[in-house]
């Protein structure tokens, strides 16, 4: 049986196809995963983009729409995916996907471009509780992205630069728009770029961490979402949360789409 999970984010569509493999004697279901990720072309409506991404992943897997038993959607734009049988929240999908990748995970931190949140999950990947920063760019990847632009760096370079600093400069501005001016004045006062990068990533990490603490930090901590690729942010988050290790999936952007496809598969067995 094949199911599909579509994560309709604000800027990109992520699709995961999940094949349930019936292996003899296996204690639990096994799955094979195929994924595709397209940036949302600016001139496309969300439903058109969803169809395009879905067709691409099917073509890559050598499948047709008829081969897929059921499609579930998640993400901020999940209601725009007209061909999905059901929409599930990002929290439900993220927790499910994270626990599938890391069975010991109980605290899931999801930091994407537009939101940062923490979830507490049980061993089945059911989200028990969550708290987040939504609809404010300061609590998410957008904040770091805007500041990296001010330093004329890519977000990746920005993260790497931050790792080279051991300073802790507090940022006064809490708003992305005001922080841009603060970063510009730090540049003018000849503050090393590495230190500015660390100050910015520490600031985002501390905001995200405050939200995660509302759900409580316990068990293995997993970070999902696009900010996983930012080594500097991961380091800052460890510091803010006071943990030695944070588990990082190798396909962090797809975890919610994966969780979505897993839930779709499970529902077929009910």
């Amino acid at each position: 049986m094949i199911t599909a999970g579509i994560d309709m984010g604000s800027r990109s569509v992520k699709v995961v196809l999940l094949e349930e493999l019936n292996v003899d004697g296996a204690p639990a279901l096994k799955y094979g995963v195929k994924k595709v990720h397209i940036m949302m072309p600016g001139d496309l409506d969300q439903d058109v983009a969803a169809n395009k991404a879905y067709d691409e992943v099917l073509a890559a897997a050598g499948l047709t729409r008829d081969d897929v038993k059921v499609v579930f959607a998640t993400g901020a734009g999940r209601k725009q995916v007209a061909f999905a049988a059901e929409g599930i929240t990002e929290m439900t999908a993220g927790a499910k996907g994270a626990v599938f990748m890391f069975p010991q995970a109980r605290t899931v931190v999801d930091v994407g471009a537009e939101e940062g949140r923490g979830m507490k999950t049980d061993g089945e990947g059911r989200a028990i509780d969550f708290a987040g920063n939504e609809k404010c760019a300061a609590g998410a990847g957008s904040f770091a992205e805007a500041m990296s632009r001010a330093l004329q760096m890519t977000l990746k370079e920005f993260g790497d630069a931050s790792l080279k600093s051991d300073k802790s400069i507090p940022m006064n501005a809490q708003c992305t728009v005001f922080a841009e001016s603060e970063v510009v004045s730090l540049i003018h006062s000849a503050t090393p770029k590495n230190d500015i990068a660390k100050a910015v990533l520490d600031a985002v990490a501390s905001r995200v961490c405050a939200m995660v603490r509302r759900v409580g930090i316990e068990g293995e901590v997993v970070l999902i979402g696009g900010m996983v690729h930012n080594a500097g942010f991961v380091q800052s988050l460890k510091g803010a949360m006071g943990v030695d290790t944070i588990s990082l999936p190798d396909m962090p952007e797809y975890i919610s789409a994966l969780g979505c496809a897993l839930i779709a598969a499970e529902r077929q067995h009910r």
Partner: peptide, 17 residues
């Protein structure tokens, strides 16, 4: 619809498009 200036800016661009 976005309160946040950063998101409102993207939304404004979307409206132009």
């Amino acid at each position: 619809s976005s309160v946040c200036v950063v998101f409102a800016k993207s939304e404004a661009l979307g409206l132009l498009k």
